[in-house]
Design a protein around this nucleic acid. Structure first.
Lengths: 200, 200
DNA sequence: CGCCGCGTTGAGCCACGTCAACATAGGTGG
DNA sequence: CCACCTATGTTGACGTGGCTCAACGCGGCG
């Protein structure tokens, strides 16, 4: 759990499992196309269901989650995947072709837990929803602080089922109450319940 | 897919896999307790996350879905499961102890799809949300009509993140516009887009 | 420089939440 | 059987949180 995450992959000239870097805003795959399943090593991925009248938010994948598993069954992706933060992906179930039952079970349990998290982001008042989303997206750094790569307003609005305007107001409120420190447009620090939490 | 659903289980005196009948309102298992995983043969199950301040809706399991899979990993249930319609359950992965990869993959894909369905029930206007929930809960009968076992207002409100009052109004509106025919308190017929659908 | 996408903030309005009264169904005991 | 009680569902009146519309600042890019 220390700084052993970044294995010297580049030094050994791309070993068996290589990490794919995806930049924010980039589409990872489109619905209906062919491809493999991926595991999210870091970052955040937005999944969308494509309907006749457009796309609607259908799920969120964070560190450790697997996306595109359905392609192993149906031969094509069911959803569209889009990076809402800079991501690192690695192929899933390509090295060990025989899917261990425990690995699959773990993935299933994580998916159900994640689904519950996302569902909770659509209940309660706007400010609290946006705050919870920030906490969910944040990753604990070595010094214990929680760092967040802030997505665009469009994405945050789609996830929380609020409008961009309302999310913007909530983010401003978060900053004013000291629960969120912004460093530039994309980076920030979140504080779970920094005193001002009770101050509505 | 015909009338072969009700196998003469009672006649043959409970074969290898027995179906467990659960009545509406009954709690299937509590969070933190031990037990096995189940597959929903028919009916509808509500999953709740237990927090310090109460329970919050965390997922929905319908025909074919698996609940409590996490117990195979952690030894206890993560959520609470409650029947919101009369259900038939069967043990999952107890007969063939070696979990086939394809079966697990299929379960995973179904879970992600179901999660997206439920998420969609929390977007859009109240009337449309309740209508979509009814369509989701309905099962196609032999004659092609869609029959629904209507849950209590509390459950429908928790799923759609509306209040009981608003759900009640939406249900009344559904009935007035002819999209829902009620037979008694619990049973009804849903019509996907019966003419009046365009009439806002 | 002009254009465009993104984020921010204000003003007004409406869908839904809240509160309240009442109707109905189911259960329990006499 | 009825009297009574409670849980559940229905409907009306009213307030408000978030949506809509609109204006503006800012940064990136041709």
């Amino acid at each position: 759990m220390q700084a052993v995450i970044a294995t010297p992959a580049s030094a050994t000239a791309a070993p068996t499992v290589q990490a794919h870097k995806i930049t924010i805003g980039q589409r990872i795959y489109a619905a209906g196309t062919e491809g493999i399943a991926w595991r999210v090593k870091s970052g955040a991925v937005r999944l969308d269901r494509i309907t006749g009248e457009g796309r609607s938010f259908a799920g969120l994948a964070l560190q450790g989650d697997v996306i595109g598993a359905e392609t192993l069954l149906f031969g094509q992706y069911s959803f569209e995947a889009c990076a809402i933060a800079d991501c690192e992906l690695e192929p899933w179930l390509s090295a060990d072709k025989a899917p261990s039952g425990e690995s699959l079970l773990r993935t299933l349990a994580a998916a159900e837990r994640r689904a519950a998290d996302v569902l909770a982001l659509r209940a309660g008042e706007a400010f609290e929803r946006v705050r919870q989303l920030c906490l969910l997206l944040a990753r604990e750094r070595d010094d214990g602080r929680r760092e967040i790569a802030i997505p665009g307003l469009k994405d945050m609005a789609a996830i929380t089922n609020l409008t961009e305007v309302t999310v913007s107001r909530a983010m401003s409120h978060l900053r004013r109450t000291g629960l969120l420190q912004r460093h530039g447009r994309r980076l920030g620090l979140v504080f779970p319940d920094a005193g001002a939490a009770s101050a509505c």
